[in-house]
């Protein structure tokens, strides 16, 4: 089997859903956050891809496009020592508490 991201020619009968979802603000923000990180030398587009392609296959299959970007950005920032997983855990929990989402 090819790697999970290598979709060309995978057998599927699924029709192509042509409906566009309205982008959430966090998706726009994440897309542009990656560009800013690139401009400062923290992660280029190849690293974005490497991060996406190293996502656990089960998560890759079920996550949305910018969820995969989030996972990749995290991999790169942690790998480069810019942020720690604990910092991200703690702040994500604080944000969810602030907005009233279950952690």
């Amino acid at each position: 089997m090819p790697a999970v991201h290598d979709r060309g020619g995978w057998p599927t009968d699924d029709s192509i859903d042509r409906e566009e979802h309205e982008w959430a603000d966090w998706e726009r923000q994440t897309q542009s956050f990656r560009t800013v990180l690139d401009s400062k030398g923290f992660m280029n587009v190849d690293e974005l891809r490497r991060g996406i392609e190293s996502i656990d296959p089960a998560e890759y299959e079920t996550s949305t496009y910018f969820e995969r970007w989030s996972a990749s950005i995290e991999t790169m920032l942690v790998e480069k020592g810019v942020l720690t997983i604990k910092e991200i855990d703690d702040r994500a929990k604080a944000l969810r508490d602030r907005w009233g989402y279950p952690s």
Binding site: W26, F33, E67, E74
Partner: peptide
């Protein structure tokens, strides 16, 4: 708000 969404926002902040 998904886990990955909140983590992206956390990293930015």
């Amino acid at each position: 708000l998904g886990v990955r969404a909140s983590r992206a926002l956390a990293m930015h902040e």
